[in-house]
Design a protein around this nucleic acid. Structure first.
Length: 638
RNA sequence: GCCGCCAUAGCUCAGUCGGUAGAGCGGCUGAUUUGUAAUCAGCAGGUCGGGAGUUCGAUUCUCUCUGGCGGCUCCA
C-alpha cells in the first residue's frame, strides 16, 4: 500500500494500526480485536457514532459501540424503530412515518395514520419477524437535498426535517429492504441484529400547538438477543404483580368507587399506615421548629385571584356556588398560610416562620390521568410554607435537602433530583429568578447532589428542586419539592418589620418531603411488594396458638403486645399451623409468633420473621423489647 | 381531556356460535385441634357496569353513558 492511501487508526487499548483508506470501520475493529468487537453494533469514530460499514477516511480514533454503551443502546433501539416503521408501512400502505427516536427505556415511532387496532400490531409484529429472519441490511445513501425532497415528496414531516437539517451536510437515508427512511444514522448492519425487539403497545399522541389530528405512537423495547428480551419481559410481569392497586385490595388498605373516581377510600388498615407516615414527618417538624396550622378547605374566588390560582390553575379546581358566591376547593395550601402570616404585623424575630399544614387538597385532574394512589383528585401533602428573609433562604434549602435524603433513606428508596428553572411565562423580575435559581443550584452543587437540569420546567412563580421516585414499572413520579417563591409574598402583600425599623418583603419556600401520603405510599408499596417495614405495617404481630389449649396464653400475649403499643392480633386454631403461617405471609405480617405446649410452659415464643424459613425462640419480654425496639428505630426489615 | 383496549360473585378468571351462568380463593356453618407457606364437607353470594336499540328472546349483537387499564398531556 502506498503511503498516500494508508491511514493510522488508534484503538481504545492504545494500539495503533495502519489500514488502507476507506477500510470499513467493522473490518478494522475485527483485525484489532475480534473478541472485543464481536458484540459491536456500530463504531465510534473520533467520538462520533458511525456504521460498521463506514469507510474510514483519515487518521483517527476507533472504538466498538455495544449495547452496554448508552450510544450503542440508542443505535439498536433506533434501528428497532426503523424496523417497526418498515412493518407498519408494509401493513398499512399510505401510513406516513414521522419520527422514531430511542428513549430512556426503549423507543417509539410516531405515524400519521388512521387510528390503530390490536390486529394492526399483530401485522406489524409479523412483518418485523419476516424482516429479522431475512437479515435485511441497513444501507446508507447520501443524497442531495433536491433528491431527498423528491424521495419524500409525499411526506410533509420528512420534508420538514430535510428543511431543518444543517445546510452544509448531505442528507442521508437508510434503505431496509424496500423501506427507505430519512435518517442521520448510524444503524446496526442488518435486521438480523434485531431479534430481541418487542412491540409493547400503541397510543394516540396529541400534537402540541396545532389542531392537527393525533399521531399514532408505537412503543417498543430492543435487546441484542431474544434471551435478554425474555428476561426483560419476565421482569415486567413480576413488576406488574407488584402494582400497588393490587395491594390496596389484598391488604385491605384502600379502595375506589365508580361514584367517586380518583377519590381514595382509606380503610382502617390503610389509615394505620397513613398515621405512621404522619408521625414520621411530624417528628421532623418538631426537631426543626415547625408549627402546624389548619385553614379552610374552601375559599372565595377573590382569594384565588390574589394567589394567581384563578388565572393559572382554575381548570384544575373544583368550584361550588354558595348563595350566588363562587368558592373553590383549595388545590394547594399556600393561600391559607399566606393569610395567617398576614393576619397581624410580623417581626424579623419571627423568621424563619415555618407553617405546616396537612389538609386534604382537591384537584380536578383530567380523568385519563388518574392512576391508583399515584394520581388522585383528593390527597394530603406533608406540606409547609416557610417565610424567610432572603439571606435565610440558602441555609433553609440546605436543611430541607438533608431531610429529604434522610427521609428517603429510611424507606430505602432511590430518588432523583431535578432543578426546574424559569418557564417561558413567568411572574416577576428576571433578576429575582436568577437569584433564586442560583441559590438552588449552589446548594445542589455544594452538597454534591446529582441532579438533572429541567430548563423551563419551573412553576410560574419560582424555580424548584423536585424529587422523583419510580414505580415498579419504571414510571417516574414527583414527590418531594422545594420551591422558592418571590411572587406570592408580593401578591398577598406580605411584610415584616426588620431590625432597621423598615418593612421588608419575605421570601416564601413551599416544600414537601414525602410529597403526598397517597402517592408516596403507592410507590412505596410497589417497592416493597406490599411488605411494609414493621413500623408501617398495619398488623405487626400475628399470634398463632398451636391448639385451643394455647388460646388463653395467646390472648394474653396479644394483650401484652398491645399494651406495649405493638399492633397484634390472634389467629385462632381452626386451621392448621401451616395454613395460618402461609396466610400471615400472604398478608405480609412482619412477625408471626407460635405458642404451643413448650412455649406456654417456658413463657417463651417461637418467632418466625416475614420471609424467613427458620424460627427463633425468645422469652416473651425479649420478643416484646425486640419488636418495640425495631419499630421505634424504624428498621426497614422485620 | 385525547387514542386504543377492557368491564361476568368480595378477589382472580372460565363460559354462553342469542335461550338469563360456573370454578378456585375469600366469606359463613359444621367437623377437625393441628408445631411453621394451603385439613375436609356443606351453604350463601351474580337484574353478567348503567341506559337505550335490534330480536319471540340480549350477559352475548349495535349505540350511548359510567368506570378501569396502557400511553399522550399534566402533576404531589
Amino acid at each position: 500500500m502506498s503511503e498516500l492511501d494508508a491511514i493510522r487508526v488508534r484503538f481504545p487499548d492504545g494500539a495503533e494500526e495502519a489500514f488502507p483508506k476507506s477500510t470499513p470501520a467493522g473490518s478494522a475493529l475485527q483485525r484489532w480485536n475480534a473478541e472485543a468487537s464481536k458484540s459491536a453494533l456500530a463504531a465510534s469514530w473520533d467520538g462520533v457514532p458511525v456504521d460498521l460499514a463506514f469507510p474510514l477516511p483519515s487518521d483517527g480514533d476507533l472504538a466498538p459501540l455495544t449495547f452496554e454503551d448508552r450510544a450503542g443502546r440508542d443505535i439498536l433501539e433506533h434501528s428497532s424503530a426503523h424496523l417497526v416503521a418498515k412493518g407498519l408501512v408494509e401493513s398499512i400502505p399510505g401510513a406516513l412515518p414521522t419520527h422514531g427516536p430511542p428513549t430512556e427505556e426503549g423507543f417509539f415511532y410516531d405515524f400519521d395514520v388512521r387510528p390503530l387496532t390490536p390486529s394492526d400490531l399483530d401485522s406489524v409484529r409479523a412483518a418485523m419477524d419476516r424482516s429479522v429472519r431475512a437479515r435485511e441490511p441497513f444501507v446508507r445513501r447520501e443524497l442531495s437535498r433536491l433528491d431527498a425532497e423528491i424521495l419524500f415528496a409525499n411526506n410533509p414531516y420528512k420534508l420538514r426535517y430535510i428543511a431543518e437539517a444543517p445546510p452544509d451536510e448531505p442528507v442521508s437515508v437508510y434503505d431496509t429492504g424496500t423501506f427507505t427512511d430519512l435518517c442521520r444514522g448510524p444503524h446496526v448492519p442488518n435486521t438480523g441484529w434485531l431479534e430481541g425487539v418487542h412491540v409493547l403497545g400503541f397510543s394516540a399522541i396529541t400534537q402540541e400547538d396545532s389542531g392537527a389530528a393525533p399521531l399514532q405512537r408505537i412503543r417498543g423495547v430492543g435487546f441484542p438477543t431474544r434471551a435478554q428480551l425474555d428476561q426483560y419481559l419476565k421482569m415486567r410481569t413480576e413488576a406488574e404483580a407488584r402494582d400497588h392497586r393490587i395491594f390496596g385490595t389484598k391488604l385491605d388498605l384502600f379502595s375506589f368507587e365508580d361514584a367517586a373516581p380518583g377519590f381514595p377510600f382509606w380503610h382502617p388498615r390503610g389509615m394505620v399506615v397513613i398515621h405512621e407516615l404522619e408521625k414520621f414527618v411530624r417528628e421532623h417538624l418538631d426537631e426543626a421548629g415547625y408549627e402546624e396550622i389548619r385553614t379552610p378547605l374552601l375559599f372565595a374566588q377573590s382569594v384565588y385571584e390574589t394567589s394567581g390560582h384563578w388565572e393559572h390553575y382554575r381548570e384544575n379546581m373544583f368550584l361550588t356556588v354558595v348563595e350566588g358566591r363562587t368558592f373553590g376547593w383549595k388545590p394547594m395550601n399556600c393561600p391559607g398560610s399566606m393569610l395567617i402570616f398576614r393576619s397581624r404585623a410580623r417581626s424579623y424575630r419571627e423568621l424563619p416562620m415555618r407553617l405546616a399544614e396537612f389538609a386534604p387538597l382537591h384537584r380536578n385532574e383530567a380523568s385519563g390521568t388518574l392512576h391508583g394512589l399515584t394520581r388522585v383528585r383528593e390527597f394530603i401533602q406533608d406540606d409547609a410554607h416557610i417565610f424567610l428573609a432572603e439571606d435565610q433562604v440558602e441555609a433553609e434549602v440546605r436543611t430541607l435537602l438533608a431531610w429529604i435524603a434522610r427521609a428517603f433513606a429510611t424507606f430505602r428508596l432511590e430518588w432523583n433530583v431535578e432543578l426546574s428553572t424559569r418557564p417561558a411565562h413567568f411572574l416577576g423580575e428576571k433578576e429575582t429568578w436568577d437569584r433564586a435559581e442560583a441559590i438552588l443550584e449552589h446548594v445542589l452543587k455544594s452538597t454534591q447532589t446529582k441532579y438533572r437540569l429541567a430548563p423551563g420546567e419551573g412553576a410560574f412563580y419560582g424555580p424548584k428542586i423536585d424529587i422523583h421516585i419510580r414505580d415498579s414499572l419504571g414510571r417516574s413520579w414527583q414527590t418531594g419539592t422545594i420551591q422558592v417563591d418571590y411572587q406570592i409574598p408580593i401578591r398577598f402583600d406580605l411584610e415584616y418589620q426588620g431590625p432597621d425599623g423598615q418593612l421588608h418583603r419575605p421570601v416564601v419556600v413551599h416544600r414537601t418531603i414525602l410529597g403526598s401520603w397517597e402517592r408516596f405510599l403507592g410507590v412505596l408499596l410497589e417497592h416493597v411488594a406490599g411488605r411494609l417495614p414493621p413500623w408501617l405495617a398495619p398488623i405487626q404481630v400475628r399470634v398463632l396458638p398451636v391448639t385451643d389449649r394455647h388460646s388463653g396464653a395467646s390472648i394474653g400475649l396479644v394483650e401484652e403486645l398491645r399494651a406495649a403499643r405493638v399492633r397484634s392480633e390472634l389467629a385462632g386454631a381452626d386451621e392448621s399451623i401451616a395454613k395460618r403461617v402461609r396466610t400471615a405471609e400472604v398478608d405480609r405480617v412482619p412477625w408471626v409468633v407460635v405458642l404451643g405446649d413448650k412455649e406456654v410452659a417456658e413463657g417463651s415464643v417461637s418467632l418466625r420473621v416475614r420471609g424467613a424459613r427458620e424460627t427463633r425462640s425468645y422469652s416473651r419480654a425479649e420478643f416484646i423489647s425486640y419488636a418495640t425496639d425495631r419499630v421505634r428505630r424504624r428498621e426497614f426489615d422485620p
